[in-house]
């Protein structure tokens, strides 16, 4: 009931007895507010929030469970599993999610978690890369990200990463498509407003992969970015393109200090 057509109604509520409700709400939300930054959790409806809060109810955990299985499944010509090199994910993957995308000196490239996973498959397991948005890649990403849940996002942005951050920022402010909209038009200028039935938030990336009630599946950040670019009636960039990597980096940096909340649940 948080749509413009109900604004009058919501206002009446707030005046009447909303103060107590607002307080309870703000305590729950506090975790996902850092300074003036806040995540999609804070404006999700209460049902969606409680779905995310309870690991036994959160549908994202179906992928997490699958990821846990895959963690110790040997695959590829080297006959190795992730566990063979990394041991317990709870320890070795603890802060990983909060630090990506990250510069990989060896290949001279910025990599997100999905790409890092596939890099390990190629280099260390001699296994085929998992396809973008494949159930296995989503599962492993969710499992890895979960290990950093609660850790403040803190991507490195100096040195060779700096031009990528600058490019990400440029893309964030660049207008796209027939509708001529930039990310900032929706997620900065109109942060907190409604577009049709959708609440425009700050486009924080700390909750990915996200279980989307609309799509009834877990989605990667790249999937979301493709959707947002497409919504401007622009030619989307391909999965894993430099453009999305740089945007991922910029989004992470914009959300610095917010806790990793993967797998989040959104409408």
């Amino acid at each position: 009931m948080r749509r413009p057509s109900h604004i009058a109604f919501a206002l009446t509520l707030a005046v009447a007895g909303g103060a107590a409700f607002a307080q309870a709400q703000s305590e729950k939300d506090a975790k996902y507010r850092v300074g003036d930054k806040y995540t999609g959790y804070t404006y999700a409806d209460p049902t969606t929030q409680s779905m995310q809060d309870d690991d036994y109810v959160n549908p994202g955990f179906l992928w997490v469970q699958e990821g846990e299985k895959l963690w110790s499944a040997a695959e590829g010509a080297a006959g190795k599993s992730c566990a063979d090199c990394h041991g317990k994910a709870q320890e070795s993957m603890k802060a990983v999610g909060a630090l990506y995308p990250k510069w990989q000196e060896k290949i001279g490239k910025l990599e997100n978690v999905e790409q890092r996973i596939n890099q390990c498959r190629a280099d260390n397991m001699k296994a085929e890369p998992w396809k973008w948005e494949s159930p296995a890649l989503l599962a492993m990403t969710a499992y890895v990200q979960l290990q950093s849940r609660g850790q403040p996002v803190d991507v490195a942005v100096e040195g060779p990463v700096k031009p990528h951050l600058q490019n990400g920022e440029r893309l964030f402010y660049m207008r796209h498509g027939q509708l001529d909209l930039s990310c900032a038009n929706c997620h900065e200028d109109n942060d907190g407003k409604w577009m049709r039935g959708d609440h425009l938030g700050q486009a924080m990336a700390n909750g990915f992969p996200t279980y989307r009630l609309k799509e009834q599946t877990l989605i990667s950040l790249q999937f979301r970015l493709i959707g947002c670019v497409r919504d401007t009636r622009a030619e989307a960039y391909p999965y894993g393109s430099d453009e999305y990597l740089d945007l991922e980096l910029y989004l992470a940096h914009r959300g610095k200090g917010l806790p990793v909340e993967a797998p989040s649940v959104r409408r």
């Binding site: 660049m174 207008r175 796209h176 498509g177 509708l179 001529d180 909209l181 497409r230 030619e235």
Partner: peptide, 26 residues
């Protein structure tokens, strides 16, 4: 110039317009 509202009858000055919509006003 800063507005979020699209120009509904304009085809120039746009960026990466979807191929099937290129050159067409909204």
């Amino acid at each position: 110039p800063q507005t979020a509202m699209p120009a509904f009858y304009r085809t120039d000055g746009l960026n990466r317009v979807r191929k099937d919509m290129e050159g067409k006003p909204i």
